[in-house]
Design a protein around this nucleic acid. Sequence first.
DNA 1: TTGAAAGCGATACCAA
DNA 2: TTGGTATCGCTTTCAA
Lengths: 337, 337
Amino acid sequence: MTTIHEVARAAGVSISTVSYALSGKRPVSEKTRQRIEGAVRELGYEPDAGARMLAGRRTHIFALTEPLRADTHAPTHMAFVLAASVAARRQGYDILLLTDEQASEGMNRVAASNLVDAILVLDVAPDDERAVIARAVGTPTVFIGVPDDHQGLTCVDLDFEAAGRLAVGRLADAGHRRITLLGQTEAAYRRSNFPRRLVRGAQDAAAEREVVLDRAASGATVTEPSTVRTAIASALDRGHRAFVVHAADDVHELLLGTLEEHGLVVGEDVSVVSAAASFDTSSLRVPVDTIPLVPQQSCDLAVELAVRRLDEGAATPEIHLIPPEYRSAGSVAPARG
Amino acid sequence: MTTIHEVARAAGVSISTVSYALSGKRPVSEKTRQRIEGAVRELGYEPDAGARMLAGRRTHIFALTEPLRADTHAPTHMAFVLAASVAARRQGYDILLLTDEQASEGMNRVAASNLVDAILVLDVAPDDERAVIARAVGTPTVFIGVPDDHQGLTCVDLDFEAAGRLAVGRLADAGHRRITLLGQTEAAYRRSNFPRRLVRGAQDAAAEREVVLDRAASGATVTEPSTVRTAIASALDRGHRAFVVHAADDVHELLLGTLEEHGLVVGEDVSVVSAAASFDTSSLRVPVDTIPLVPQQSCDLAVELAVRRLDEGAATPEIHLIPPEYRSAGSVAPARG
DNA sequence: TTGAAAGCGATACCAA
DNA sequence: TTGGTATCGCTTTCAA
């Protein structure tokens, strides 16, 4: 194993100079820095993680807690884990996984043992027990998602309410007065709070714009195709020609397929807006206007907040809502009749 | 922060006694152990991770490398990550995530910096570049999956070949002479090697038993329902009444649905065996005989091998194939006429 | 611009 | 059965 001493000897300097040259925390003359970097490369030196933690009081590791519930939508969840991992690495941090039961016990453990510099919380529930722990431990914690009681917490999330408002607003702008929101199941609305935030925004906008907003439950993902088909048919019967979808890709496909079966062309006879989807909507059979949920945005911001807190000391806890962005694809047509 | 010194003082012993009492590496009298454990609990002591690494040359962390490819089946992948995490925790290890580009660069980095005690490799490709790195780094590495060139590596996996043999064997036992294997796409066969191992086993068994084995590509997951439906109908036309499925849940549902549409009853008119599925087949619309791929089995074994290697020194690198297990559910009926 | 040396908080060896 | 202490490899203060 190569140590800092060997690097120092090879470069003909002291170990402190090597340390400073590598961390940049003290100016080092260009010449010596060159020699040191040469020695580092030649010897394949990598600082010992344990020694670094002990001496530096910095582990360069973030914990990521994810309570893998049975109903978690795997692809979305994976996208968030990946985005968090990439964002962390870009800032020089590794990700330590805390799953399941460890979600709570693990947070305490890694905090008490100084294993991590900060904690990122994924898949946040309305009454998340991790909120309590976050307030208790000394380790900076950032939630990706917003629990009901978020006092004293730092949270990051898409502004779902604004997304709901935006979706309905655009359809209203196009003249639609009857809109159907193809959303999640009742159970999902209890488990998380972002779906209901989206609904609230949609309802607010509907009230303001004086449009009728019906809700049809589909589940985040398709479980009963026939039920969803029936709901869509019923909406069409009642003259609805505008749909907001907040669900996974298969629900989108089912909607588009059903509309097609009814002989309706999206962007002409009928309008569709996808709200807060985390998958790539461009791979759908028909281009659809989208207000995307971008995991990378949330995770980048979360990591940035964590790093800032570590570098600059205490940050004021607060909620950071990411403004939704509307991406047009021609699936919204002016209302007829 | 509570240190070992404070615990020692509170218990009226030396720090070495505290250390030994906690690690169990030296006998400690019952009385003193009690006092120490009391002090630990009272002070909420948790050993400092950095100090432990530095002094003990053990980090109690495993790296988990997962190259999240676009076509990765998320639910299966998540099941493996979860299983690995649980298995590791049970042995006192945390999991450090290495995703994507970090797969290779990260392995070198965590090995060189002594950040982890061992590396677990997930989602193994036939020509996996991580095999090369595993041979180069000093850190014990266990593959969950088997690359084509596995010389000098320690690998763990389901015995897919035996699973393929078993599936065909059971159907042949029931008198079937024409069997259709509903498997993956050509692309998938290139990307991984376990699907082809399963096919090989199935073909071997078919040759031995003198049965006709046709293959129908479906993709690991459904992309073109109509194509798959057509393939199934064609098989039925050709008198096939036995199916082996190696795919995700949606393909299973599609098969069962299509058979139903043809007025065929599974377990009576037609036989179905699910091979190497990692999802819960009991939630299918019809009970299906299954040869499951249990992530927990693979991950438990992988962690055990890693731990054994750490505790007992060098282990002989080798391939550990987990024997498949047949779970009957009444979906295999005797062949007719 | 650089060096010397004091810790950081455990582990584990050597004694008693 | 227990205690004292050298040691791990780095960061950082204090001096030069």
